[in-house]
Design a protein around this nucleic acid. Structure first.
Lengths: 147, 147
DNA sequence: TATTGTTATACTCTATAACTATA
DNA sequence: TATAGTTATAGAGTATAACAATA
């Protein structure tokens, strides 16, 4: 990327800041996760499944705020890697219940540790207090009813 | 969107927070800018041109961190709306110097006022002190050398 | 040879519509 | 009829490669 100074007119814009900070973190996460053969979204799926197990595809999609059609390909990829498995729900045979495989659980632990370390290093320039407050503030903004 | 509670396992992830807060703001900005016939990126181009005038397409692209091939379509759209104009640089005829038209300048003022109001309302849940600190912290993270 | 703008192309992420199987 | 999963398709946004004009 070009080593160009950021114009003041942009660094005062919340939208520009959020977008580019997100991109920067996203690059760092992608790099850190590459040895584990998964990307950030796939890791998020594994994390959700580890917390609530098992969930239907639609439920996973709802948790992650992605479309159910997007979830199909996501689960396809994870199933192809042997990290999750689908099985029809006996109670409602329209539903695919998705669960972690043993390998999926193991991969999750290793990869999420790497992700946490990326977050930690990424936030380090703020100092501990401000880093915690940033996370809390982002949570508040995400939850806020009308913005 | 589904009115579903956010899982703890996601709201503690910096990547998830940044992505979805950014999306939420982006939606709000798009809504606020729609009466002005431009989107957030186009407004950013106008802002950069108002601050440094005129710039070549490549310089604008550098400021905004977008590819020069992306900039072609962006300038095409703005020129089509009569908000900017290209003219060949006399010094280097490879360069398209891009400048604001009078209408572009006027549109910028109105639209950016709307965007600032969106930012203000969006950050309101944090209180004034934390809102300012959030912006400052995002600037620090964006500038930080290695994260 | 290198750079600027351009076009063509492709890839990712996402969403909409329509299909199937189930309910 | 409505819902869950799937497929096909299309729209953003972005990037790479190749070309023309110019340096």
């Amino acid at each position: 990327m070009v080593d160009e100074k950021l114009p003041d007119v942009l660094v005062s814009r919340l939208g520009y800041l959020l977008k580019h900070v997100q991109l920067k973190l996203s690059d760092a996460v992608a790099l850190a996760l590459s040895p584990f053969g998964i990307d950030g979204r796939e890791l998020a799926v594994l994390s959700v499944l580890a917390a609530e197990y098992p969930l239907s595809q639609l439920e996973v999609a709802g948790r992650l705020r992605v479309d159910r059609t997007t979830m199909v390909a996501l689960i396809d990829a994870l199933e192809g890697k042997g990290l999750v498995e689908r099985r029809r729900s006996p109670e409602d045979r329209r539903k695919n219940m998705v669960g972690l495989t043993a390998e999926g659980h193991e991969r999750l632990l290793k990869a999420d540790k790497a992700r946490q370390e990326v977050d930690r290093v990424f936030l380090a320039p703020l100092g501990e207090g401000d880093a915690g407050r940033l996370v809390r503030d982002l949570q508040i903004l995400l939850m806020a009813e009308q913005s």
